[in-house]
């Protein structure tokens, strides 16, 4: 015996999406600790930190799967289902990328040259800031449903997205600075090491890019 009027209400994907982003944020934020450990050359801390990144990525993955299963076709949502699923994938890519960064650096026992180390830490922190900002914006999703995606709340979220874009362009700036220092010192580094440092620079930049893309997708949802 069941109540049909009640069964019309599917479980809203907004909370799970927020929870997933929260987990992704935690995962990426651990990178700050990881890079501090790398700079301090504290091997035990590096390994432990990489381990917790892997675990958090795994938890995010589980959340992603259960959310996908709860979004079958035939759900009538206030935003497009496509946008929601794309957003989920982008969020998840942030966690994946964080895991890749930590995994590669641990696997190759990478060290950062002293001349770029402080700036690199700032770079990582700023990328994580972008993710934190994306998390803050995503957290407004249930409020957006409450307001029917209209009015003041939309302006609040748009402002958050603007800040997110600002942070992302900061990371671009820092990346340029790091690259210019690297260009001067790369000649003294083992070539393969230099190559992989460039790759890590690229990936950390991609973290901020992904966060920005989550923001743009949210903006698309507002405009539906």
């Amino acid at each position: 015996m069941s109540n049909y009027v009640f069964r019309m209400f599917g479980s809203s994907p907004m909370r799970p999406l927020q929870d997933h982003m929260g987990k992704v944020h935690l995962c990426a934020a651990e990178l700050v600790n990881f890079f501090e450990a790398v700079i301090a050359q504290d091997q035990a801390r590096i390994t432990a930190s990489q381990q917790s990144i892997v675990e958090l990525e795994h938890e995010a993955d589980k959340l992603k799967k259960s959310l996908r299963l709860s979004l079958p076709k035939g759900m009538f949502l206030p935003v497009s289902r496509r946008d929601l699923l794309d957003m989920l994938t982008m969020q998840d890519n942030i966690a994946n990328k964080s895991k890749d960064i930590a995994g590669l650096m641990l696997g190759r026992q990478m060290e950062l040259p002293e001349s770029i180390a402080p700036l690199f830490l700032t770079y990582v922190k700023r990328s994580v800031d972008a993710i934190a900002q994306a998390d803050t914006a995503i957290n407004e999703l249930d409020e957006l449903v409450e307001t029917g995606f209209r009015g003041r709340e939309v302006k609040v979220v748009e402002k958050m997205i603007k800040t997110l874009n600002q942070i992302e362009s900061d990371t671009d700036e820092i990346q340029i600075q790091i690259r210019s220092i690297m260009f001067k010192i790369e000649i003294d580094l083992p070539p393969i090491d230099a190559m992989f440092i460039y790759r890590i620079i690229e990936w950390v930049g991609e973290l901020a890019d992904l966060a920005q893309r989550v923001g743009s997708r949210l903006q698309l949802m507002l405009a539906k």
């Binding site: 049909y4 209400f9 809203s12 907004m14 035939g74 759900m75 009538f76 449903v145 409450e146």
Partner: peptide, 22 residues
């Protein structure tokens, strides 16, 4: 009542509605 709920849903006010049940 289903009509009323759909009306709110069309105003983007409900997280998810199960169209199959409707």
């Amino acid at each position: 009542l289903v009509g009323g709920v759909l009306g709110v849903g069309l105003a983007r006010g409900i997280g998810a509605l199960n169209m199959r049940i409707i």
